[in-house]
Amino acid sequence: MQTKNTKTFYLIPYFAWILLFVIAPIALIAYYSLFDLSGNFTLDNYKNFFTSIYLKLTISSFWYAFLITVFSLIVAYPTAYLLTKTKHKQLWLLLIIIPSWINLLLKTYAFIGIFGLYGPINAFLNVFGFGETQILFTDFSFIFVSVYIFIPFMILPIFNALDKLNPSLIDASRDLGASSWTTFTKVIFPLTTNGVKAGIQAVFIPSLSLFMITRLIAGNKVITLGTAIEQQFLVTQNWGMGSTIAVFLIIFMIIVMIITGQRDKGATSNGKNW
């Protein structure tokens, strides 16, 4: 149908893009991770990564990402479930998505005011007799803001999975005498695990690499892998170490994607993946 010439003509810019901006950057990151500050070939960066400083950082980064993902899931699942029960559910879903289109920086900035010492939350707490407490620059504020940012990305895949669920399965489960809870744990949840996995993937990986929220909301108290990379690249100018952390971040990303990958399509889902 298409001759070889036209085919390559279509693909030249696209191939150039893949080569220059997909393959080359990853190769460069891997290459740079093998050099120290003065440009000598070395494996020291990798050795450094396995010292307590970086291991602690990695563990705490994982811990925060875990917490953010869990809280997002706890809030998002019921929301998605209830959304599928509403009339005009597509419109409601759109309303959930709109905030995710507002510039991320602005949403984060809003919380500087909201959690501030004289902000509305503190004013609210004052009514109940609590004195002014520092909410900003705490773990709580960091996790709250991150969950706030990521919630739409968790709701969407779960909503799609629930929306595809055949309602007669729920009826059947009820008819066979299962309680609502049993129906949920044995029928609804297992059939929507693909949505949950997609949501976890969409939240966990970006949570590992947050750096803007940590700076603005957590006030440098929380250091994630993302913050560490930014620090190495733009502050200490140690590109080698920064690249090494980036290599590990890529490895973690691949592991997370394998774990949350959806190889067992037929077994757990009765519909297409989104």
């Binding site: 990151i29 990986i205 970006p206 993302g226 690249f233 980036a246 971040l249 890529i250 990303m253």
Partner: peptide, 9 residues
């Protein structure tokens, strides 16, 4: 890919 990795690379 995380934005930070894209940016750095």
């Amino acid at each position: 890919s995380p934005d930070v990795v894209i940016g750095a690379s």
